[in-house]
Computed example of a mutant assay.
Amino acid sequence: MLGMNDWCVDPSCGNLGENVDCCSLTYFSLSCSRLTSIKLQMWNLPALEELQISRCQFLKSIIGQSGQVLRSTSGSRAFPSLISLTILSCSKLWTIDDLLAEEYLPAIERILIESCGSLWSLPDERFGNISSLRDLRITDCRRLSWKKGFLLPSSLQSLTLNNCGDISAWVPSCLKNLASLVTLRICMCRHITSIPGSLWTTNLTSLENLLIWSCPDIVSIGGENAISEIQNVSIQWCYKMEDLKQPVVR
Score class of each variant (00 low, 15 high):
residue 81 S to E: 05
residue 190 R to K: 13
residue 225 N to V: 11
residue 174 C to L: 04
residue 43 W to Q: 10
residue 8 C to F: 06
residue 129 N to R: 14
residue 165 G to D: 05
residue 152 L to S: 07
residue 179 A to W: 10
residue 109 E to G: 05
residue 26 T to Q: 13
residue 248 V to F: 06
residue 159 L to C: 04
residue 67 G to C: 04
residue 211 L to K: 07
residue 161 L to P: 11
residue 211 L to W: 03
residue 77 R to A: 12
residue 175 L to W: 06
residue 71 R to D: 00
residue 75 G to D: 02
residue 79 F to H: 12
residue 82 L to V: 04
residue 209 N to Q: 04
residue 12 S to P: 04
residue 141 C to T: 06
residue 185 R to M: 09
residue 107 A to N: 13
residue 207 L to T: 13
residue 18 E to T: 15
residue 218 I to G: 07
residue 60 K to D: 09
residue 7 W to D: 02
residue 66 S to C: 01
residue 89 S to H: 06
residue 62 I to V: 15
residue 17 G to A: 14
residue 224 E to V: 08
residue 223 G to F: 07
residue 159 L to G: 06
residue 233 V to I: 15
residue 115 S to E: 09
residue 226 A to Y: 09
residue 136 L to N: 06
residue 205 T to G: 08
residue 15 N to W: 09
residue 42 M to Y: 14
residue 166 D to K: 08
residue 219 V to N: 03
residue 140 D to P: 00
residue 29 S to C: 10
residue 127 F to M: 07
residue 12 S to K: 12
residue 198 S to P: 01
residue 99 L to R: 08
residue 222 G to A: 14
residue 159 L to Y: 08
residue 2 L to H: 09
residue 167 I to Q: 14
residue 118 S to H: 08
residue 85 L to W: 13
residue 183 T to H: 15
residue 122 L to Q: 06
residue 207 L to P: 11
residue 228 S to N: 13
residue 208 E to M: 11
residue 53 I to F: 05
residue 181 L to H: 02
residue 47 A to N: 10
residue 169 A to G: 03
residue 202 T to V: 15
residue 247 P to V: 10
residue 207 L to W: 05
residue 244 L to A: 03
residue 205 T to K: 14
residue 235 I to S: 13
residue 23 C to N: 15
residue 75 G to A: 01
residue 131 S to E: 09
residue 12 S to W: 04
residue 48 L to A: 07
residue 210 L to D: 10
residue 53 I to H: 01
residue 34 R to C: 11
residue 126 R to P: 00
residue 147 K to P: 00
residue 208 E to K: 15
residue 129 N to P: 02
